[in-house]
Simulated scan of single mutants.
Amino acid sequence: MLRLENKVAIVTGASQGIGRCIAETFAREGAKVIAVDMNKLPYENKNIYGYEVNVTDRNGIKVFFDTITEKFGRVDILVNNAGITRDALIQKMTEEMWDLVINVNLKGLFNIAQLVGPHMMEQGIGSIINIASIVGEYGNVGQTNYAATKAGVIGMTKTWAKEFARKGAKVRVNSVAPGYINTDMMKTVPEKVLENMRGKTMLGRLGEPEEIANAVLFLASDESSYITGHNLSVNGGMRL
Rank of each mutant, 00 (worst) to 15 (best):
P190E: 04
S15A: 15
V33Q: 12
S221N: 08
L106A: 09
N59M: 09
V153G: 03
F64L: 09
A23H: 11
L78C: 08
A161W: 00
F26K: 10
Y43F: 14
Y49W: 05
K192P: 01
Y51E: 01
A113T: 15
A27L: 08
A82W: 12
M93F: 13
E210L: 05
G168S: 03
A165N: 02
E163I: 10
L232C: 00
G126M: 10
T69W: 00
G142A: 09
G179F: 07
C21A: 15
E52F: 04
V173Y: 00
Y226C: 03
L115K: 07
I154M: 13
S225C: 05
E122I: 14
V8H: 04
M238L: 04
E95Y: 15
E195W: 01
V216K: 10
G108F: 14
G124I: 06
K107D: 11
E44C: 03
W160A: 10
P178E: 07
G117T: 06
Y43W: 04
P42R: 03
G60P: 12
D57C: 11
E211Y: 09
G108L: 08
R239T: 06
A169P: 08
L194I: 15
S224F: 07
L115C: 07
E122M: 13
K187Q: 12
S224D: 06
A27N: 06
E223L: 10
V135K: 02
A88C: 05
G152A: 08
M120Y: 00
A147W: 15
T201Y: 11
F110V: 05
N54S: 14
V234S: 01
I134L: 09
V141F: 14
R58P: 11
K192Y: 11
N196S: 15
G168A: 04
A213T: 13
I129V: 15
I112A: 04
K192S: 13
I112S: 07
G30R: 08
L219C: 05
C21T: 15
G237C: 03
L232D: 01
V79L: 10
R86P: 01
M38A: 03
H230E: 01
N81Q: 09
I134A: 00
N130P: 07
R166N: 01
A161T: 02
S127E: 11
L219E: 08
M202N: 12
E44T: 14
M97C: 06
T157D: 04
A27M: 08
F110N: 00
G152E: 07
V63I: 06
A220Q: 13
Y43E: 03
G126C: 09
A132R: 00
G155C: 03
N47L: 05
V135E: 04
G207R: 09
M156Q: 02
G17I: 13
M93A: 13
N174L: 04
E211W: 10
G83C: 02
H230P: 01
R74Y: 02
F218S: 02
